[in-house]
Amino acid sequence: MASQNGASETPTEYIFHHLTHLKVGEGFWTVHIDTLLMSSMLAAAVAAFLYVGVRRGSAAGAPVGLRNFVEIIYEFIDSQVSDIYHGNRAFLVALSLSLFTWIAAMNSLDLLPVDLPGSIAAMFGAGYFRVLPTADLNGTIAIALVILALIIVFSIRAKGVGGYLHEWIAAPFGNNPLLWIPNIALNFIELLAKPVSLSMRLFGNMYAGELLFMLIALLGMVFAFSIAGISLFIGQIIVGSVWAIFHILIVLLQAYIFMILPVVYISMAEEHH
């Protein structure tokens, strides 16, 4: 915190500093280096973890060690998907496994000390660094857009292009030319609500969690020179611990929600109206 830019930093500057991305480019063509770097590194880590996991201790007998852990995750997701989706679920299991492991890994970055990533980035000469890709709306909306595309693809695969377009104008109110406009409007809203709610929910949870960690960190910083500072420092440790422990739940819960809702959406998309 204070070590980065000197003791003169005000709380407002501190928060602002922590909420600024490391970026290049202008306007729409701005790219958040930190988001892309952390998410791709974690994607690689998750892929490596799962790849090594399925190839170690994979004897025909009882699974051991890392393999056992991977199998627990896989079987949990497989049973969740099979409860919701009836059909060949190979792709949906792969999708859910990717979503759950990747998002859980990214959310877990919120548990790092709030000043640690920025300090490390400063050593490499980067002025700003937000470590949490899921607290960047770009990060969550990207995944949600892929889900949106998958919803449309699965709908068309189940109903054909004609059947899908027919549903746009004929459902849910009925196939009457007067009702085409309301049908299309409602379908549009329904379709758009899915990625928006998915991305906003994850982003909101993670952004709020990150912000709260920053405010808790401020507790110990703002009053560091007063007598009461010691008690506030202790308060920071207590509140920070409580929030961190509670945040473990949020990390996994949000990953689970983001994993299970696409399966629900896709199985709904295959239903005929």
């Binding site: 892929a47 990717s98 770009n138």
Partner: peptide
């Protein structure tokens, strides 16, 4: 901004990898 395009690519690569080599 354009960050989400990169994020989509990262996600699709991860999805491809897991769907091909893990599940």
């Amino acid at each position: 901004n354009a960050t989400f395009i990169g994020q989509i690519i990262v996600f699709l690569i991860l999805l491809w990898f897991i769907g091909k080599f893990v599940t």
